[in-house]
Design a protein around this nucleic acid. Structure first.
Lengths: 305, 305
DNA sequence: TTGTAAGCGTTATCAT
DNA sequence: ATGATAACGCTTACAA
């Protein structure tokens, strides 16, 4: 049953080397007193035969799963948002580096049943929330259950680890740069204010408008019809440029405007698809953001045990 | 240490009910001889106290991980392709229904190191390959290691389970419908032919052109510069409409054409972003496709053990 | 320094 | 029908 080529268990290696499983275990982990010689012998053996530990067994013994869980929104639109996919790639990549597996879980908006399941089965050592609204039920659940958690984007909650970009600053600088081209009546159409990131962008835009001494009008929207109303409002009030809170909003805005004679449109978040319409937007490295989140989480896992 | 409210182990329940752990195990699984009465007693107890089994322990005992692994491409562009994200959501959703966790792994193009790691650590009971090229190294690895695998899209390999859409048929019908509007010189710009799906689309397009009695020109491309050359070629040879193999190609094509006076453009795969430019395309339900893949995989896992 | 043995929580095999 | 007991592969006291 057991392969001769590849040792499948510590026992196999132990037998082959005339040692005991525990000695091999120590040789590999470096924990506990063990002779340099034995370590080398084991290491040498490992070169040829490529043993991989059974993480389930290891996990059971150490009370860990060696996997981290990415908590994703599952609403229809998210597939159109490269941010989530890229961020996920970053998490996965950073996880693998530390031998952590990345699992995912999605719940329908405002439900947490699946996440709850995952949590109570102890299938993950930590959680990365890829989006958190105010009073986010998923975040609440994770905190209640005392799960190690890192949020992508500032959740605006005390004592929660998070990684974030400087949305406010970036938006402010970007807006100022655009306004300096001579626009006098900027409008901004920004998504749901229950997301901290949208509030930051709003502040950044407003600060830039104030500094430039022009009156900036902000339309905060949630849902497609809100966007249509905002676009109409902006046009009627004579806006000469429209800033969109993110790529999703921007794509919707573009689809509502006649490409030929639309005002200048920009987005606060870049997306390749926007290139088709020649839209400018600041770029963020979401994969790197995911990497950072995972690194922080794993670090906190390894240090707490 | 152990919570009084929530039993964390079978032992806890056994103690509370004056039974043994193995009896409780049987009561829950329904396997083996056990009295109706005991089953009811245990079931009743479970109502109040919401016990969740430790899947690691269960997995160790049964030689399973209770998780399935989605193998994703990690190239830069994939974030722009809603297909992968949507498919992943479907997999995750179907997995949760059967208490399977969905984990993900990505490897840089043509590398399989990470997947190999996951495979040899036995962290997944089965694999879903979200994209397979001809002679795909990841698929080869999975088959070599005798991993239960389902591929999304026909990999063109014997004895491999897969789920797929009828790309050829859909493309043929779609192309015919468009051509019946009077176009006489259709061109198609289709991605790398190492992907079966692109070959299917090419066949579908060609069949439609043949049926309509017009000469269809196919440009097969891989990479952005290939697309530019193809677009130029199509324009110079007087194409009056351009079919794009998928949403990615289409977005690139659109960015190369002047929106005002471009020929009619259509895509063989829909993407919300294309709506901005009013592009038509057949729609596929990728989430459902993912669901089907997961269902098949899980079914095969449960039946083989 | 190394080996032995107990333990992680579950399932499966055997007695009872 | 139920309860011990071994087993899954690993870690970690504790013994030697």
């Amino acid at each position: 049953m057991k392969s001769v080529e590849t040792p499948t268990t510590l026992e196999d290696i132990a037998k082959a080397l005339g040692l005991s499983a525990s000695t091999v275990s120590r040789a590999l982990s470096g924990k506990g007193r063990i002779s340099e010689e034995t370590v080398n012998k084991v290491k040498a053996y490992m070169e040829g035969h490529n043993y991989k530990p059974n993480m389930l067994a290891k996990g059971l013994a150490k009370g860990r799963s060696y996997s981290i869980c990415a908590v994703l929104p599952s609403d229809a639109v998210t597939g159109q948002i490269p941010f989530f996919y890229e961020c996920l790639m970053g998490i996965c990549s950073a996880g693998m580096k530390s031998n952590y597996t990345t699992m995912i879980v999605t719940d329908r908006e405002d439900r947490t049943g699946r996440l709850e399941s995952v949590v109570s089965m102890g299938k993950a050592d930590g959680y990365i929330l890829l989006r958190a609204a105010d009073d986010d039920p998923a975040l609440k659940l994770l905190l209640d259950k005392k799960c190690r958690t890192v949020v992508v984007g500032n959740p605006g909650v005390e004592d929660v680890q998070f990684v974030d970009e400087d949305h406010e600053g970036v938006c402010e600088r970007f807006t100022k740069e655009v306004l300096s081209r001579g626009f006098k009546a900027p409008a901004a159409i920004i998504g749901a204010q229950k997301y901290n990131v949208n509030r930051s962008r709003k502040r950044g835009f407003e600060a830039a408008a104030a500094e430039k001494g022009v009156k900036g009008t902000v339309y905060t929207v949630s849902g497609d019809d809100g966007i249509e109303a905002a676009v109409n409002g902006a046009l009627q009030s004579g806006a000469d440029c429209i800033f969109c809170g993110d790529d999703t909003v921007c794509l919707k805005v573009l689809s509502l405007l006649d490409a030929g004679k639309r005002p200048f449109v920009a987005s606060f978040y870049y997306n390749e698809s926007l290139a088709v319409s020649g839209i400018e937007a600041p770029r963020f490295n979401s994969k790197e953001l995911g990497r950072r989140a995972a690194a922080i989480l794993i670090n906190s896992i390894e240090n707490k045990f």
